[in-house]
Amino acid sequence: MLISPTALYALALLAIPLGAIVLISFWTQTGVRDFDTTLTGANYVEALSDPIYRALMFRSLRIAGLVTLVTVLAAFPIAYFVSFGVPAQKKSLWIFLITIPFWTSYLIRVFLWKVILGYNGVFNSGLKVLGVIDQPLTFLLYNANSVVITLAHAYAPFAILPIFVALEKIDRSLLEAARDLGENRVMTFLRVTLPLAAPGVIAAVLIVFIPTIGDYVTPELIGGPGGTMIANMIQAQFLRLNNAPLGAALAVLAMLIVSVIAVAFLVLGSRASGAKGTRK
């Protein structure tokens, strides 16, 4: 039997670790490195019943949802501008410019946001100099807001690119046809551009939502107590609290929730992009 190297590679790096996590989630930890390997569902019962884990899961969903919303809403006009407002020969330059933030390490970008949003940061000092505020604003850093701002900035290019590609694929004569049939610019956008850009928007939503819900670095560095997310709790269970099976159970649950949401969006996406009429 021939198994391709790719399949072996995927098996070793994806399937085995995933299987291990699922397996561990049914164990019980008895010491620093000792496990009771009797299969038990106790970890899942605890993960689902303890209000702390539930609260963290909901907060993660809320933050990831908010990040996705902010990112996609901000990305759409940029993608639209590059696709419709920039001359054809300058489009690649614009896309290139959009990716420039990636040249800096993600960690450094997170720290830079700390500098910008901090108590004596660029933003607060700036507003003080201008006389807009007397006291520094404190709702910016070490809470959910800072996590949303930082993640939205970090993931913006990932959202811009699929939307841009979807907009580029729209035959421009379709927009002229809509105008010709009596619609103004706004209605043309709503009836033609937006439905045809839907696959790109769905892709952007998934690309932003899936990684952000499990993001660990940003909440750790600038989230503060109010910005802690489920990934931070999973890390704490594995390393600090010596309860790998509970951490694994939380990880599996988070994965399941993300999968359900992702599949829902995919179904929504294929329905939006496919024609509504029945094929014969």
Binding site: L174, A177, N184, V192, A272, A275, K276
Partner: peptide, 25 residues
Amino acid sequence: VPANKRPTNMVFQSYAIFPHLSVAQ
């Protein structure tokens, strides 16, 4: 008078049929 207000309608060279809509739509 913009295109959407003119008493003209066009059959485009590419036909410009909206791909996300049915024939009736």
